[in-house]
Amino acid sequence: MMADASEADALTNDKEDCEKIDPDKSRFPYCIVWTPIPGLSWLLPFIGHMGICTSSGVIRDFAGPYCVSEDDMAFGRPTKYWRLDVSKVCGGSPEVWDAAVRDASQQYGHKMHILCCDNCHSYVALALNLMRYDGSSTWNMINLCLLSLLHSKHVSIADSLKTWLPFLLLYGVIITVTVVLNVR
């Protein structure tokens, strides 16, 4: 009887360990992850590269034409993550989550990457639509961009700086130059 209880505790602990976010290992179970795109994110810091993670935290992202990468995000390690609730998946199971991520990956592995209309955000939206996350099948790149901006957390202070510092410096220089030229 004692062995059964300790085995159940061990299984519960293993499951909890698998679902823990571990930035050092780039493991973000049930998360949407985001990283800035150099140049573009400096101008518009809410625009960046997005991926979705499996139940074990493996990152999948639509990295380019006909390419869905695994654990190698196109623009570097995630700087922000948005943890989603697996119970909001139709069926509420890790298997449904993983199947939706796998199916979206298979579909996008045969697609051309089009920056403005069929991109990494569209790939994540398809995965959420396939799992009917939060009872919805209307996820798209616009609502993902906005909701990610509102709900995601920075992985670290350094990652927060990586996201916002180039934008602040660029606009600081523009404002300074504008003020200096207008004073003369």
Rank of each mutant, 00 (worst) to 15 (best):
I142W: 14
C145T: 15
W139F: 13
L130A: 06
W139C: 03
N119M: 05
C117Y: 12
D134Y: 00
Y123I: 02
N140P: 10
S136F: 08
L130C: 06
I142S: 15
S137Q: 15
Y133G: 00
L146D: 07
D118Y: 12
L147Y: 14
M141C: 11
N119W: 04
M131Q: 01
L146T: 10
M131G: 00
S136P: 03
T138G: 13
C117H: 09
Y123S: 04
Y133I: 00
C117S: 12
D118K: 09
M141V: 05
Y133C: 00
S136N: 12
S148K: 07
M141S: 10
L150N: 09
N129E: 09
M141I: 06
A125C: 12
N129F: 04
N129K: 09
L126G: 01
L130M: 11
G135S: 04
A127K: 01
D134T: 01
G135K: 01
C145D: 04
N143C: 14
N129M: 08
L149F: 12
L130I: 14
N119I: 06
N129G: 08
A125S: 13
M131R: 01
L115S: 10
C117V: 09
N143I: 10
Y123K: 02
C145P: 04
L128T: 01
L149C: 13
L144T: 06
N140C: 15
N143K: 12
S137N: 13
